[in-house]
Amino acid sequence: MNQLISEKTRRNLTITGSSSVMGGIYNNVKIVGEGTIEGDTDCKKLKCMGTMEINGTLAAADQVSIVGTCDIKGGLKGGMLKTSGTVAVGGITQLRELNISGTIESKNDIYSEKIHLRGMLHTAGDCEAESFTARGIFEIGGLLNAGKLDIKLYRDCKAHEIGGGQITIRKASLMHPLSLFFKPSSSARLSVSVLEGDHIYLENTIADIVRGNKVVIGPGCEIGFVEYKEHFEQKKDAVVKDKRKV
């Protein structure tokens, strides 16, 4: 369908106030106030300030920016998502980049190149990214799979499984400028059942099994079993019940 409509015939869609429209192919979509889109929507850019509901899937090639609330019943696909509000997605999220200062709630898997989290991420499915940076809260029902995982714990975080290349989990520093607005809890923990990676550094983590090449267990950790290949180090204030070199 995309090819049939040339770039020129894509029109802009603007909703101001309260309105409901049909889905379709648009250029830029802008919603100020309250808008409902019935059906699948394909656009270049979508901007929402207020409340929006899409009863279908949303594909936005360039950017989706949300200030306010956005409820997408279907999947979300496209370029970059920037949110400082709340985004709920029913289907699969597949984006180039996710920049979350607010909340994203997904009932399904999330795939992205880059995820930068400063708010909250909640998904019932898996979460995959080449780079995953978190300075907030996340809860992942499935596998968190990332090439580079850089997590600073501000509140309790949870994932069923974590896997990747470089995994660094630290407690948040009180000196960070962000800490003025969003005070990290000193008792923040990450709970995970299985964590596997090449280079692993952990703080404040509760895990049943940790498997890796080079593993460093830092302060505040409670690990059931560690399996390592090359290097293992256990800092003070860390509990490791059992470990084995393979």
Partner: peptide
């Protein structure tokens, strides 16, 4: 063990 690949590679290929 058998293939000599690392966890990182395995997860990367899955991604």
């Amino acid at each position: 063990e058998l293939t000599g690949i690392s966890y990182g590679q395995l997860y990367r290929w899955k991604r």
